[in-house]
Design a protein around this nucleic acid. Structure first.
Length: 430
RNA sequence: CGGGGAGUCGUAUAGUGGUAGUACGUAUGCUUUGGGAGCAUAUAGCCCGAGUUCGAUUCUCGGCUCCCCGACCA
């Protein structure tokens, strides 16, 4: 991708009305555009990261048997009436107010919708268990949108729902989701704490949240420094300095961002929709359910909150919009064997290798500005091509999160793996 | 929903009861090129409505929007 053609460019100044780090950096970097408070557009580079997150989630959900599907964003009253959630103030009503459309709400969750769908297809214990998920925009009448991508009025969410014939089976699957969530957050460069919490409008029982500890978090959790046991303040009887109920370690109070959650729903929704199955003894039973959410935008915003420095974003490898940032410097056009010509060639060859590369081919930018932009954009690897490096048939390679640089032969560059795992692409040379 | 702050070119800001400067950006030309370079020219703006006034971007009132704190919530 040529940077001169990338839709959306960087801003030199922080946006006037943003104080949160993720909003400032993502807007300055041209990753997102704020349309309204808590309502964002993802520009092409930001959408690349969002899609990477989505694909990581898809991989891990599919790995535990989740099946991707897609449900309507418009949810009719009949669904939410069944669980008395039509009047929950979280919902935005659809704009049209005529008789036909007054009965719709912009979907803020889909337990009811999928449970209703399941009533047609679940008859026997042989139809269970199954788990289906979607990645879709949710709409919530957020009284106070804030902190950039961390709390919006609409947000892209992965919502997974599981259906079981027994509590035991739900528990087993719950543990699988828990393990998958740890993988997802790790792959996104985040260390999450598994936390016991309350269920809000979703369920009366206790739930679990994945919390990323950071001062900008709006949740408060009590977490054991030793074993990682944690409780959300909203249900916890712990206090800072207490002994951990699991390991007697020290409990600390921390601010945290909730990046994912798991809800044991039991029969709350199946009973409301009369979702029953015939068990192996020929008797009817309610289906046992669970639901599991991850906010993708919030996850992206959290990654930025955690991974940045005073110059910009430092994307974790797996969710970086590009793997390598090829920066040409002092390029003069229309000269034989010019820097630009060479850089173009390297760009093409990297693309041929299947590398995701952003190529800063801009002629009207100085070296300083290109470096500043590279730091702001936070792509994991930066390869500088200039007269100086070409004299040695090389590019200057640098990792965004490291200080040192190294000249690497162009031929060698094209064979590097730039792998997120297994250490440095320098192969131990640096 | 309560409290606080703020709305001026694309961005960041200055300023005024007589319609507005600056910097960056953008455009054109030339000179530059290893950490936001230089010269010249051009470009574009007072959130909306009502009131006061000869005249309102400025004052008053109302509204809308954005940010922050709190309550609520993924």
């Amino acid at each position: 991708m040529k940077q001169s053609q990338l839709f959306g460019h960087t801003l030199r100044e922080n946006p006037k009305d943003e104080t949160s780090v993720n909003a400032r950096l993502l807007e300055r970097g041209g990753f997102v555009y704020k349309n309204s408070a808590g309502v964002y557009s993802y520009l092409p580079s930001g959408w690349r990261t969002l899609e990477k997150i989505a694909n990581i989630i898809r991989e891990e959900m599919n790995a535990i048997g989740g099946q991707e599907m897609f449900m309507p964003a418009l949810v009719e009253k009949k669904y939410l009436d069944a669980t008395k959630r039509w009047d929950v103030p979280i919902g935005f009503e659809a704009k049209e107010k005529n008789e036909k459309t007054a009965n719709f709400v912009m979907g803020w969750t889909h337990e009811e919708v999928l449970t209703a769908i399941a009533t047609r297809y679940v008859n026997s214990y042989k139809d269970l268990p199954f788990a289906a998920y979607q990645i879709q925009t949710k709409f919530r009448n957020e009284p106070r949108a804030k902190s950039g991508l961390l709390r919006g009025r609409e947000f892209i969410m992965k919502d997974l729902y599981s259906f079981h014939s027994s509590e035991e089976d739900l528990k087993n699957f719950y543990e699988k989701v828990k393990a998958a969530y740890f993988k997802i957050f790790n792959r996104c460069g985040l260390k999450a704490v598994y936390t016991i919490a309350a269920g809000g409008v979703f369920t009366a029982s206790h739930t679990h949240e994945f919390q990323v500890i950071t001062p900008v978090g709006e949740d408060t959790i009590f977490v054991c420094l030793k074993c990682g046991y944690a409780e959300n303040k909203e249900i916890s009887k712990l206090e800072e300095g207490d002994k951990c109920p699991e390991c007697r370690g020290e409990i600390k109070m921390e601010k945290a961002i909730e990046v994912g959650n798991l809800f044991p729903l039991d029969t709350k929704y199946s009973s409301a929709f009369n979702l029953q199955f015939i068990n192996s003894e020929g008797k009817k039973e309610y289906v046992i359910m669970g639901s599991y959410g991850i906010g993708l935008g919030r996850l992206m915003g959290t990654a930025v909150e955690i991974h940045n420095d005073d110059k910009g974003i430092i994307w974790p490898e797996e969710i970086a919009p590009f793997k390598i940032h090829l920066v040409e410097i002092a390029a003069k056009q229309a000269e034989e064997n010019s820097v630009k010509e060479q850089a173009e060639k390297i760009h093409e060859e990297l693309i041929d290798k299947g590398m995701e590369v952003l190529y800063d081919d801009r002629d009207d930018k100085t070296a300083g500005e290109k470096f500043a932009d590279a730091d702001l954009l936070g792509i994991p690897w930066r390869a500088v091509v200039s007269q100086k490096t070409l004299e040695k048939d090389s590019v200057e390679l640098k990792q965004r999160n490291k200080k040192e640089t190294k000249l690497v032969k162009i031929s060698e560059l094209l064979n590097l793996k730039f792998s997120a795992k297994g250490g440095s692409a320098f192969g131990g040379k640096i």
